[in-house]
Amino acid sequence: MEAWGVALIKVVFIWAWTLIIATLMTWVERRGSAMIQDRLGPNVCGPFGILQPLADGIKLFTKEDIVPEKAKKILFALGPIMFALPAFSAYAVIPFGDKIVIGGKEIILQVADVNIGFLYIMAIGAMSVYGIVVGGWGSNNKFSILGGLRSTAQLISYEVPFGLALLSVVIIYGTFSLREIVLHQQGTFLGFLPNWGIFKQPLGFILFIVTAYCEANRVPFDLPEAESEIVAGYHTEYGSMRLGLYLFGEYVNMYTLSALMVTLYFGGWHIPYIDMSKFLGPVAYGIASFLVFFLKTCFFLWLFVWVRWTVPRFRYDQVMSLGWKSLIPLALLNLFITAFLVQLTI
């Protein structure tokens, strides 16, 4: 019974936390892009405009909910939910800290330490495309359908290098559990480098980050919603909170993917060369590990924003050819080399 209670608290905490991060990210994105572009951005609501997401939320909630006359009503309603739900669920298997001891009880800072965490991420991540396709189709708008189709093709193509890049990580650590992968990354590698995934998988990391951008529909892979070509892609016809769910889902996806990057390649909650558990109390250690993990995640979240406002957008066929002609061969090569090296060392 107690285990249930703990699990529930963790779930509620991580949902709320993700929500807060996603809302804050909309503000960071707007302020950050403004700073990059020599502007100020929203700075009126609250100090530094930090309450802007709240204002946006109120606006989205109170706006009239318009359903196009010729839209397929059920699909139209289903789309945003199908997009947002997997985005929220994916975080369940990612460890957001090491462990914390409260009342003599050790609690792992992870909603569920599933031993197939990897497969869960892959499966849930691929689900979100349904939300886009269903929404695009249900809108009964040519631009929406184009956006939906672009998204499908893109996700199917990039799922392969994404999976292959992950597979190399699995080969190295020999486990599917994300928590165990992080635990493996303690200490040093080759004597002087932190024992992080990125130093064992440099090519794999580049492949992973490129495909992650594609999975998250971010620039330079934001073709499904390329606003200058196909208006707003799959969410052309959406308004009010339905649109809000799509936008929200995107940021939650970003958060999940950033956390995944930290987990796999940047040592999770480890600080290089320092073992925090040695000199911190159990409670302080739990909080510190959580914060370290979060700060690392923040960097990747910011990278999403930073890249978005720096590079132009690909064209549809170029994304395809990049995926199939460059990334998949590279991912296969990476997998092969990894397997070979692992075989040598064992």
């Binding site: 572009q37 020599d38 502007r39 390329a226 200058s228 406002w309 720096t310 132009p312 957008r313």
Partner: peptide, 16 residues
């Protein structure tokens, strides 16, 4: 042209 190809930032640098 930059905006339409997705690069919004140089647009602002020039428009200033």
């Amino acid at each position: 042209l930059g905006v339409d190809i997705g690069a919004l930032t140089p647009f602002f640098y020039l428009f200033i």
